[in-house]
Design a protein around this nucleic acid. Structure first.
Lengths: 348, 348
DNA sequence: GGGTGCCGAGAAAACGATTACATCTTGACG
DNA sequence: CGTCAAGATGTAATCGTTTTCTCGGCACCC
């Protein structure tokens, strides 16, 4: 306790010490710890010994022998994207309740880094993996075979080799466009990320909805960052005859657009209307003129975990793709000052 | 490859298979993989065999034998708090570069959950741990002894048993108050979290700064959540003679306050001035009337990792406490509409 | 030319748990 | 009262690596 020197390499107490302290075999200790059948008397002795010795099982040894890592890997582009923040939290909660660990990996949309993490997942012998792949690997991952179940979230490839949970991007985008058209907009610009299949789908939905409303799509693609969207929209707003309404394919881009609008000296409900994905906390602050599609992030994470667990039980069942739907949050109140009075035309 | 049934329990190829394929001993394979001394010829053979077999080392076995987990534990209250999001990202980046894993744990400010995770850290035999403890465990953790180095971040206890990295909360709060006083405010209310030592320090700084300016502190404590701050401030604003300026002890509270102000039908620069900690993305959107202290989050994470590594090398060196400083970002532009014209007094 | 030291490689022990298998006890049943 | 099944417990093998130890060969030096 009051040693003069610390080494951080202490031997520590092992299961043998506990067994000795309780005068039983290591097998019995193991059985007590993992709920095997032992007589109440011995069980009591062992538990006392565990408390007395301060024994902590060595998870590496346990995993090696039992061949269960009780670990799931979560690979996303950047945890700082609030969508992934919430997703990770949701996944962690389920894992925690199931007594599992989560390894969280940020790829920064870099395929190399992603590949490194895929290798890591194999070396960790994870129980399963949840991944939002970059577009390049989205296809590739479908052809790869892993020794553990894989669930794609948010982004998905064409084949459908693995289980997946996504939202209905086409429908969601259509809702967004129809909402803006209802508001009287005829020209609606779109800014989309250029790294994810999700952005592609949302662009398709956008284009389709515009065309079927008899309008002309005007889309730009950019790096899915705040700065990317900001510069892109700034340029656009600099053009003489630009649209007065824009949509963004995710929350980061949306924020970048808001910044660009402000920087251009324009104000949001009056001069420009925005809409997009992800009901982030700050969007409510803008209020009027910024409608969004809210994604059921908690449900996405929980569903992904469910798919994983199901797959572990039935490895050969056909792959399932869960399609959840986003919810349109209309923010069209007349003026930001007199907020909170629900506008008359606003169902939902 | 095209098996009819998958089991997710395959034997997989082990180091023995690689050794056999290369006609060497497992020791040699191990040495090649971990950079021991082997002749170029054998090295080449082994590397070929690794590629050919698709060998993936089993990290559990490696850790068990080598007694190095190359894992660091990061324990925070909630990753959804942007401060901790950024911190975790910063820590992960350093870890990635050092070829280490991170286990991320959310305690939700619950001491029980925190205790569970502390036990987990021991069972994982982590290389080191970085933790932002709840107030209850902040004291306790200083008396606890771990077999690995511990670095406290953001929050710290009184004793200083472990290394720590924090910001100078007293100075930062004083800056904030002086800034508001410069702006002409005489009554400045404060809302502080009730779970972290950081909030306590910030409250102390607030009280001290107010008194030394000849003003009367008016402080409320609440759960450190958006809703907590929102209800607290709503009540306050309902009082007949309330302050016109408020500070919050973190970003979540600040956002809650903005919401409360909006809900009360007041507007930010005109009716109420706010200020607080954490330069979150959305704060820039409010712009005028919302000055903040920006914390050097990346540096906090990097410093924490440095302290960890140093401690591993010199276990007996006296504990170090790194005190970084926040940076005041003054946002006092005249009106939100005519934004972005840099106000004359505002450098940066 | 014969010790001497070094280096590359293999054999085998060790890491700390789980678990297959053997053994012993006990109770039920014919 | 003997037999057998079931349950409790111990013994020892095992998981897949790293690491220690040993040995053989080779260069070096006097």
């Amino acid at each position: 306790m009051n040693r003069m020197t610390r080494t951080f390499t202490d031997a520590g107490v092992g299961i043998k010490d506990v067994a000795a302290a309780a005068s039983v075999s290591t097998a019995t200790v193991s059985r007590v710890l993992s709920g095997g059948s032992v007589s109440p008397a011995l069980k009591e002795r062992v538990e006392a010994a565990v408390r007395a010795t301060g024994y902590r099982p060595n998870l590496s040894a346990r995993r090696l022998r039992s061949k269960h890592s009780r670990t799931i890997g979560l690979i996303v582009s950047d945890i700082r994207n609030p969508f992934f923040t919430a997703l990770s939290r949701s996944v962690e909660d389920v894992a925690f309740r199931s007594d599992m660990r989560v390894i969280l990996c940020n790829t920064d949309e870099s395929p190399e880094r992603e590949a490194m993490y895929l290798r890591l997942m194999e070396e960790e012998r994870v129980t399963g993996m949840i991944i939002a792949p970059t577009r390049q690997t989205a296809d590739r991952i479908e052809r790869l075979s892993f020794d553990f179940p894989v669930v794609l979230v948010d982004r998905t490839g064409p084949l459908g080799t693995h289980d997946a949970v996504v939202i209905d991007n086409l429908r969601a985008t259509r809702q967004l466009i129809e909402h803006l058209v209802d508001l009287g907009h005829r020209r609606i610009g779109g800014i989309f990320g250029n790294t994810s299949s999700t952005a592609v789908e949302r662009h398709e939905g956008y284009a389709a909805a515009m065309l079927s409303a008899g309008l002309t799509p005007e889309a730009h693609f950019t790096a899915p960052t705040i700065a990317g969207a900001a510069t892109e929209l700034a340029r656009w707003l600099g053009e003489p005859d630009h649209p007065r309404a824009f949509i963004a394919s995710n929350g980061l881009l949306l924020l970048g657009m808001v910044k660009a609008v402000r920087a251009a000296g324009l104000s949001i409900p009056a001069d420009v209307t925005l809409a997009g994905f992800d009901n982030e906390l700050w969007t409510e602050l803008i209020g009027s003129g910024l409608s969004v599609i809210e994604q059921p992030i908690d449900e996405i994470g929980q569903s992904a975990m469910s798919l994983l667990f199901d797959r572990l039980e039935r490895p050969d069942a056909p792959p399932r793709k869960m399609v959840l739907s986003g919810r349109l949050i209309e923010r069209t109140a007349s003026s930001p000052a007199e907020a909170e009075a629900p506008p008359p035309s606003d169902r939902n």
